[in-house]
Nucleic acid binder design. Structure first.
Lengths: 233, 233
DNA sequence: TAGTGGTCTAGACCACGGT
DNA sequence: CCGTGGTCTAGACCACTAG
C-alpha cells in the first residue's frame, strides 16, 4: 500500500488520514480506525501508525482516549511560539508549512527616513486549511536595505533576505507588551471566532552591530500559546 | 538510573533534560548529549530517549539538526522591567515606595501538596495616592517553605523571605502570556477606569537548585509599560 | 569514515473502557 | 473478556555532517 518513496511512510499515512478527515469521511467526534486496523490495512508497524497519528494529534486534528479510540477533533490549535526569531524558521522547525499573505507593502516616510511598511498575516497551512497565527507589521529602513521593496515577502522570509542579500542579522529585540481589545478587522484576518482580546507586542529589532533594523508590531491569535523563559538573576 | 515508577521513563528523562537546561548546564545554542550517550547513561532504548527529546522539541526548548546534534533553543529574556525579579526591588530601583495589599492568604491542597495561596495587589505610593500596578497570585509549596503562612506579606518581600529565611533564590521563570478581557473585579482592585483588556502572565518559578518554588499568575494594569529585551541568537 | 539524527520493523507488556 | 491506546525493548538501515 505504502511503497517506498522519498517521503516517509508515516508522513504519507498522516496525509491519508488528514485528507479523510478534511474530505468528511469522519465527522467531528467520530472515532477513526484503530491502530491495529491501520497496521494491517497499510502493511506497516504500529510504531509507524502511531507516529502518523501523533503528528495529527499535535496538529490538533485528532484526540486519543485510552481504552476507547482515536477521535476527530476540530478545535483550536495550540502552538508554542515566540516568533521574533523568524516565523519561517519557527514553522519549518515544527514541520509546518508557513503561509504569508501580504496585506500591505508600501514605502512611507517617517522621522525623515524612508521605510518599507510591510503588513503580513502569518499562518500554517495544514491540509488545505490555513490557521492564521499573527498579523505582523514591519517598518524597515530603506537606507539600510535599499531595494528591499522589490522582494516578494509572500514567498521570501524577511530575516533570510536580510542575512543573505544584505548580510545583516537580527540580534536583539526591545519589546513592549500590550493587551488590545477585540477588533472586527483583526478577527476577520485571523479568522478568529472567540471573544478574547488580543496580545500585541511592539518594539525595535537591532542587528549584531546594534543598528536599528526593524520596528515590529505583532498581533497574536489568542489560540497561539506564547511561552518565554525569563532569567531572574 | 530510571527505575520503575508511576510516571513513564520518557517523561522522567524529559524532566531531567529540561531541568538541566533551565539550570544552565547548557547554554543557549549548546549541543546536548547525543541520543546514543543518553541510551547508555540512563539505560533505556533509543526510542525512549527520542520520545523525551521529541516532547522538548515540541515545547520549543530543543532543536534537532540531522547529522550534527540536538541543540538548546530557548531565548532568555536578558533583563525585565516587570515583577519577576521582585516587585520590591523594582520599586526601590525606581525610587518609589512599594505598597502591597493582601487580598487572600490561605492554605490550600493541590496535586496532593499543601500550598500557601497568596493574592496581593501591588502598587506605588506617591503623594498619598496609590497607583496599583499588578494583581499577583502566588502558590507556594509549604513542604518547601514550612511556616511561610506566618509571614505578613503586606510588609515583607516574598523573595526576600525566601532568600533570608529559607536560603532559596528564584532563578528562572517559565511563563505564558495571555490577553484577558476587561473584568469589573480586576478594574476595581487596580482602580483602572479605562476600557482596555488586561495582560496576564502565568507560569512557574524555579530556584537555583531547579526546584519549583512558585506558581505565579500576574494581571497587569494597562497603564503599566512592560518592556522586555529578547535575545534572538 | 565515524558519529549524529531520521525512519522503521517485530515484537512485548501494561492500563483502561466497555461487553 | 477483548480491543483500545500507552509504553518500551532491541535491533536495523538510512541520510546527513564533519574531520
Amino acid at each position: 500500500m505504502l511503497t517506498n518513496s522519498l517521503v516517509p511512510k508515516y508522513a504519507r499515512l498522516q496525509s491519508i488520514i488528514r485528507d479523510d478527515i478534511i474530505a468528511g469521511k469522519y465527522q467531528n467526534g467520530d472515532a477513526i480506525e484503530s491502530e491495529n486496523q491501520m497496521m494491517k490495512k497499510y502493511d506497516v508497524t504500529r510504531t509507524t501508525v502511531r507516529r502518523a497519528i501523533d503528528e495529527l494529534v499535535n496538529e490538533g486534528l485528532l484526540r486519543r482516549e485510552q481504552g476507547k479510540g482515536t477521535y476527530v477533533n476540530f478545535r483550536s490549535i495550540k502552538h508554542n511560539m515566540w516568533n521574533f526569531s523568524g516565523f519561517t524558521d519557527y514553522a519549518l522547525s515544527k514541520s509546518k508549512a508557513p503561509v504569508s499573505k501580504v496585506l500591505e507593502n508600501v514605502c512611507i516616510a517617517k522621522d525623515g527616513r524612508q521605510f518599507l511598511k510591510l503588513v503580513r498575516a502569518r499562518g500554517f497551512l495544514t491540509g488545505g486549511d490555513v490557521f492564521w497565527q499573527t498579523i505582523d507589521t514591519s517598518l524597515l529602513p530603506l537606507d539600510v536595505f535599499p531595494g528591499l521593496e522589490r522582494h516578494d515577502f509572500s514567498q521570501a522570509s524577511l530575516y533570510r533576505v536580510m542575512k543573505e542579500a544584505y548580510h545583516i542579522s537580527p540580534q536583539t529585540a526591545e519589546l513592549e507588551l500590550h493587551s488590545i481589545p477585540s477588533d472586527e478587522k483583526i478577527r476577520a484576518i485571523l479568522n478568529y471566532q472567540g471573544d478574547m482580546p488580543f496580545l500585541n507586542v511592539t518594539g525595535i529589532v537591532y542587528s549584531t552591530e546594534r543598528m536599528e533594523i526593524e520596528r515590529v508590531d505583532v498581533v497574536y491569535n489568542p489560540n497561539v500559546k506564547i511561552n518565554i523563559v525569563a532569567n531572574m538573576m
